[in-house]
Design a protein around this nucleic acid. Structure first.
Lengths: 349, 349
DNA sequence: AATGGAATTGAAAGCGCTTTGAATATCATG
DNA sequence: CATGATATTCAAAGCGCTTTCAATTCCATT
């Protein structure tokens, strides 16, 4: 059933039927009702493509997930970000077009997407420190919004981000207050903007208290369980091991917990851990004192905001950038405690 | 730059240009080259919507992720499934339209998707035991393929699935061979088809060896870390606790590991664990003897297969169903061992 | 009854592409 | 040199919608 057939059924012109369904004012309430009822009865849905062709809008938003050519990994946080964004799209009647693209051919891909007119706007995921995608998108002229930020990129653009620097500054501060002086940082992939900012916050907190930043206590990598495990294991076997860790992801934190368990080191007393918690649904602690002390910010909420802001931008057509900085919430869990005294220290093995 | 303008530039008709670019044979090689070069030069990309309107195909595939109304959770395995599928689409020039839909209004949603013509086919995720979506989609007439299966659904349909029953049958068999008699099953959400099949396999293995299936040793729920932890904790505090667990997800297995650690129970010796490992990229053990003994099957590979099969179905237009059953790989890791003898048992707390 | 404005409705063009059916150019052949 | 086959090219219709501009209807006024 298409518009022509429906109009025929009703003995009306396509014009009137179209107007009635799209809520134009110049159609009488009587006919509008008649049209709506008929549309319901025949369960008529306007063809997306035809509508898009006529209006010039596609009513779709693109999400581009960068896939690092080396590891080909997909970070599970994207699932939650997209779930949040999806809610916004569903409410607004937009579709979500998802693409996973290797960094190699990203530029061409964005140009394609824009000139084929598949989408009306785009959400950029996983921005790197000085991300070439932003000037590119600016040049292409496609409305976009970044989940995260890209320092050094000297273009103005819209973004939603959590205050990573302050989150790690505060988290480090907490550990310092507890007396920790050797604090390991198990961070995300070098070059990712969030990782750079987190390290910044960590460094600032230490430096402000006159503590030397030991490069051996900083690990970077894809935030897998194995990465957390390997990094913690290595640092814990140093002659002067850290008494605390700052971990960029709850998934890596599981690995840290495993490393600690293997060496019979008790979390919370012998070793403190603060994690950055994206509040992923599958890793939420339900009720009670949480497992891990954390700086938490729901990535799903961020996804929702990002989508809503992008839709605003698309609708208003204005190009003045919008930005939203979220503050993470510092929650004390069971994984932190005062630095262990020397007599309390134990032999490993 | 659109087709008309390009044709104008070339002094050719739209017809010829269109044919040249789409590889029709009735265009001379000389003009084809001329057209291709010009298209390159002006970086012309045909408008998706116009093309779709003209051809009747949208060159897009839908993925519908069911969001349970109660928990609003998004399983991280979807990220990997979709990554796999995404590869296939990228190669074939298809777009991927992602929707997250609450079970409540799913029927309406599918009908919409079909009649609006947004997509040419659909991948069904997370099928339940007797999933109403399958007959519905059959009725609608939209090509679809299920990742997983739905027993009892008395329609024939295409699917890609891992042999869950055999995987758990074998996993349970392994534990039984090791002398375990009290084996806990920490399964996925009741009603999900995979969970039903896994329980089947577990039951069959036990029953065949004349072992009573204790309903108290079966836990079901969303496969979170917390679920694994809570279920293991509860079972381990039973008067006659299990000496081994079969766990439906590596994420829940982390929770099991936590519960064991809390009670100072050593994995592999005092407690055995076999997990179903979807080979998620963020939870892969890299090299060496894996953490967990597992039955493993890459969900990403499955996603890729699902996409490829659906594209075949769409292209061929035949409606005879295709099916692909994958066998999981049983890999011995460090989490399993012979059942502990009684003298070796320890006091808890 | 004639008039003009407001309220409704409709015909037709256009969005950018594919594809049918017709037209033209090219060429080997008798 | 005409002829028919073959290789190329093109004009125009059509995909299903929106939207401009024009037409019609309806009323309150004069």
């Amino acid at each position: 059933m298409n518009l022509r057939e429906l109009a025929l059924q009703l003995g009306l012109s396509q014009t009137t039927v179209s107007r009635a369904l799209n809520g134009y004012p110049e159609v009488s309430e009587a006919t509008r009702k008649r049209v709506r009822d008929a549309a319901d009865k025949f369960s008529y849905r306007p063809n997306t493509r035809a509508k898009g062709l006529a209006t010039g809008r596609s009513m779709a938003v693109g999400h581009v997930i960068p896939v690092s050519d080396q590891h080909e990994m997909v970070n599970p946080i994207f699932a939650d970000v997209i779930a949040g964004a999806g809610e916004a799209y569903a409410e607004a009647g937009y579709d979500l077009v998802l693409s996973l693209v290797g960094a190699r051919d990203e530029a061409a891909f964005y140009r394609d997407l824009a000139s084929r007119g598949t989408i009306d706007g785009i959400i950029v995921h996983g921005p790197r420190h000085n991300d070439p995608r932003l000037p590119l998108l600016k040049e292409i002229g496609l409305p976009f919004l970044v989940h995260g930020r890209s320092s050094l990129a000297d273009v103005s653009y819209s973004w939603v981000d959590v205050n990573n620097r302050s989150a790690f500054y505060r988290a480090a501060g907490l550990l310092l207050d507890l007396g920790h002086r050797r604090i390991g940082l198990i961070n995300g992939l070098a070059g990712m903007d969030f990782a750079v900012r987190r390290e910044d916050g960590y460094r600032r907190a230490l430096t402000e208290r006159g503590i030397h930043v030991d490069p051996d206590l900083i690990a970077e990598g894809e935030m897998t369980e194995a990465h957390g495990w390997a990094s913690a294991r290595e640092m814990l076997s140093m002659p002067d091991p850290p008494t605390a860790f700052l971990v960029s992801s709850i998934i890596s934190a599981f690995g840290v917990r495993r490393a600690a368990a293997e060496q019979d080191i008790a979390l919370g007393s012998e070793l403190s851990v603060v994690v950055f918690d994206d509040d992923l649904s599958y890793f939420r602690s339900d009720g009670g004192v949480p497992q891990f002390t954390s700086v938490r910010s729901s990535v799903r909420e961020a996804g929702r905001m990002a989508a809503e802001m992008l839709l605003d931008i698309i609708r208003e057509g204005s190009d003045e950038p919008r930005q939203r900085l979220l503050e993470a919430e510092l929650t004390i869990g069971r994984s932190t405690g005062p630095v262990p005294t020397h007599e309390g220290s134990k032999t490993t093995g």
